[in-house]
Design a protein around this nucleic acid. Structure first.
Lengths: 147, 147
DNA sequence: TAAGAAGTGGGGAAGAGTGGGGAATTATAG
DNA sequence: CTATAATTCCCCACTCTTCCCCACTTCTTA
């Protein structure tokens, strides 16, 4: 389980160190290898090998010819990159992905249960504020669901 | 069951000692490990491993793609942290969480049945006063409910 | 008033995060 | 096809945080 928000720095070589707490899971599930890609949000997403396989399974069961599904698959795979952690626990993020997520210097590495997200701080702060507002609105719904 | 309000101090290293009465439950349910996060209120929430698991179960049963649910999960996980008690019965509260709850120096550690809440005293006093006012208003309703 | 338990504070070792040099590999240009 | 440039990878070194341990103080209880 990936939890928490860590501020790490992307150095001049494009490397980003993964929080130690995440490394344990990555080494266990993945032998130090992760899949890096993008999804619907303007951030990068990191999957362990295990979670990546689960994602593949899910995608297999989606309707093949559906327009949205086709687009989703296209983006997911075209942007995906297999990365391995170096001896210091860092991944090298390809230039294109860095550009796509607007990453440079200080960066948030955020646990989202089964995946890790990498955010440009400004963008995350915005999303977070929106989420808080949204939460107020659905408070009662959540309460009804027992939360 | 967590009961009572204790004033403890967060030291310069960000550590907060958990009241002994709470530790017994934590060691029983959790082997000294707790989950620290935030919810709707401007305070921190502490769950035992057992209670955290129950929360996970509830979340699993929510609709995955629902916007509000996604936001809720994002906030919950991004702010969560697994903490273990040190030999003195303290937890180290991550800087970001301390900032979020405005914690520094004297702090209230409050039992709320199945979870512990950590409050900045000023904020708690406000909430408490509001709750008292609210209670007056709904007194009759409560009476009807058999309280 | 002594003894024990609870809360607090701090020193020091170990670990995490960061930066950079240099070799190896790949890409580019002539 | 070769020479040069760029990128990637591996290693070492430095700093700051975290973790572990011990000690002091206060409060309670006998």
């Amino acid at each position: 389980m990936f939890l928490g928000n860590f501020t790490h720095t992307i150095d001049s070589k494009g490397r980003l160190s993964i929080p130690v707490r995440f490394r344990e899971t990555i080494n266990g599930d993945s032998n130090g290898i992760v899949y890096l890609t993008t999804e619907l949000d303007p951030c990068l997403v990191v999957y362990t090998v295990k979670e990546w396989s689960l994602l593949q399974e899910k995608i297999k069961n989606l309707p093949v010819m559906n327009k949205g599904v086709k687009e989703y698959r296209r983006l997911l795979y075209s942007r995906a990159s297999e990365c391995s952690l170096d001896k210091q626990g860092r991944i090298l993020i390809p230039q294109k992905l860095r550009d796509h997520a607007g990453l440079d210097g200080d960066t948030y590495v955020i646990g989202n249960n089964n995946k890790i997200e990498i955010w440009k701080p400004e963008r995350w702060d915005l999303i977070e504020a929106q989420a808080e507002e949204g939460l107020e609105e659905i408070q009662e719904e959540l309460a009804n669901l027992g939360l």
